[in-house]
Design a protein around this nucleic acid. Structure first.
Lengths: 117, 117
DNA sequence: AGTATAATTCAACGGACGTTGAAGGATATG
DNA sequence: CATATCCTTCAACGTCCGTTGAATTATACT
């Protein structure tokens, strides 16, 4: 694993960390069913609004969701899923965990070498 | 999101949590290049053996890697990636984050309803 | 028996983070 | 101007967990 690969692995790990929370997945799942405001998410998932806000912030930092204010009442914020982010997520996951990358060979540990049999 | 979906989301979150660590991704990446013993992984990644063991335990609990003892010297343990687990991982990720699931509709928040315009 | 090696387990530390409650904007309405 | 609503931010708490170092186990060799 080169250092470039290590950096990409760290980046992927960060993205997966954002998604490794049941509440955030629930929010994301909910948002996939249509645009939602903060309070509606809170009611559906039975969670306080500040907690929803907290998780939405994390999802937004990761580029997974976007926010848009209601032009006719700027108190309301509507959240939606970023289609491109989902595509990119799928691509990165499928690239890293591609079963085709698995190589079949026995250990090449230098300590073990020459002592086999 | 039904309770069954919520349970599946929690399960997926748990799996992603295991993968949301750079060290574990590095180990997994390394294992995809062939069977490795604990000490070889430790040398390649410059990490103490007990830490490798700790992460391998988590990866094994998640069913992502398997272990096999060297028949000729049972002190050695060889680790390998579970191809089926990778396939399942890809399937679950692609199912949950499928962009095709995104529905286009405006908010249906009951509080906001009837006050639009 | 005694030593060496591979691996695991244990205990402890420290930082990251999800959760909670309260306070602080920002905007709309009367 | 005062009140209400939506949302965010802040502070504090508790827990999870990656990391570290030391001890333990299991096996092999002499």
């Amino acid at each position: 694993m080169s250092s470039a690969d290590a950096a990409r692995a760290a980046e992927l790990a960060g993205l997966l960390k954002v998604l490794s929370d049941p509440t955030r997945l629930a929010i994301l799942d909910r948002l996939m069913q249509g645009v939602q405001c903060n309070c509606e998410l809170g009611e559906c998932l039975d969670l306080p609004m500040n907690l929803i806000s907290h998780h939405l912030k994390a999802l937004r930092r990761a580029g997974l969701v976007s926010a848009r204010r209601d032009p006719s009442d700027r108190r309301w914020v509507y959240y939606s899923v970023n289609r491109e982010a989902l595509v990119r997520l799928q691509q990165e996951v499928c690239a890293f965990f591609d079963p085709g990358r698995i190589q079949v060979r026995e250990t090449a540990c230098p300590r073990r070498a020459g002592v086999r049999g």
